[in-house]
């Protein structure tokens, strides 16, 4: 299995690296470096260095995965897919090749940025891999779900719809809480008119809770899936990680694992109609 994945990973990596799209990514990376770490500018601080390159890695990981899935989804690969005992090997190779490509460009930017960049102690340097790698993997797995290769039926809409819902709920939880409380008020009046006083009272209490402490609780529920990202950013900015914040990369990897298993399940069961 390892050899098959290794061979496929190498093939997909080379197909991107020696393509026009691959060259464009290199140019994009250099442009990013020139914009955020201009050689003439003063030395950036370490938090800036870690965050800016971390964001670059996650974004690049998403884009390269989308590009590689496009290549992996070509009909020329039917004979290769047929040879695999499990299709999971195929998307594993897609994921690994995208991560390897991202790693190369991220490393390039990271080294270039050090020319006039922050002084990096060994201790802080050792903090960097989990901070960069976990979001990269999560972004790559999300990109799998966005791709035609993996998506099946409405799966793409369901995954990104749920994500959008959490984002929306996270940013507008106060308004959402108020809106829910108003609707519950209407229900409460309806039950009151039907003489269902205990039900009406319970709904009134729920509406009151939503107008009070419920606002924060709702915010925490919707914001929970973004907590690891906030925790990493917080830890990087302050220069130290609390024990809870130190778990954030592991939680991102847990999210990525769940999403990858879901992607593998979708891909294993779908009819392969690759583009010709």
């Amino acid at each position: 299995m390892n050899r098959r994945i290794f061979v496929l990973t190498g093939y997909l990596f080379r197909s991107l690296f020696f393509s026009l799209a691959g060259s464009l990514y290199v140019i994009l990376a250099l442009a990013y470096w020139a914009i955020f770490f201009p050689p003439g500018q003063g030395t950036p601080d370490l938090a800036n260095y870690m965050l800016v390159i971390g964001v670059f890695g996650a974004a690049l990981s998403f884009l390269t995965t989308i590009t590689i899935t496009g290549r992996a989804n070509r009909a020329e690969n039917y004979p290769l897919v047929v040879r695999l005992p499990s299709r999971v090997e195929y998307i594993t190779a897609v994921l690994l090749s995208a991560l390897a490509f991202t790693f190369l460009l991220q490393l390039l930017i990271a080294l270039l940025a050090l020319i006039r960049g922050p002084e990096l102690t060994l201790g802080r340097a050792l903090e960097i891999p989990p901070i960069w790698i976990a979001p990269n993997i999560l972004a790559a797995v999300l990109a799998l779900h966005a791709s035609d290769l993996v998506t099946t039926g409405w799966s793409r809409v369901a995954i990104f719809g749920a994500l959008a819902l959490f984002l929306l709920g996270n940013s507008t939880h106060a308004g959402l809480s108020q809106w829910l409380a108003d609707r519950l008020g209407g229900f409460s009046r309806f039950f009151y008119e039907q003489n269902a006083i205990p039900v009406s009272d319970a709904i009134v209490r729920l509406a009151a809770w939503l107008r009070g402490p419920g606002i924060e609780t709702l915010g925490e529920i919707f914001g929970s899936i973004f907590w690891p990202l906030r925790a990493i950013a917080g830890g990087v900015t302050t220069g130290y990680f609390t024990p809870a914040q130190a778990l954030a990369p592991a939680i991102l990897l847990l999210f990525a694992t769940i999403l990858f298993l879901l992607a593998a399940d979708f891909f294993a069961a779908k009819d392969l109609e690759m583009t010709e």
């Binding site: 050899r3 290794f6 061979v7 093939y11 070509r74 009909a75 020329e76 004979p79 290769l80 010709e276």
Partner: peptide, 24 residues
């Protein structure tokens, strides 16, 4: 499998392609 359409990774050489298939 030999599919109906004769599509291959065009950037590879014939032997490179077969080496990859052999690896798989």
């Amino acid at each position: 499998l030999k599919p109906e359409r004769l599509l291959f990774p065009n950037h590879l050489r014939v032997s490179q392609y077969l080496e990859m298939v052999a690896g798989m």
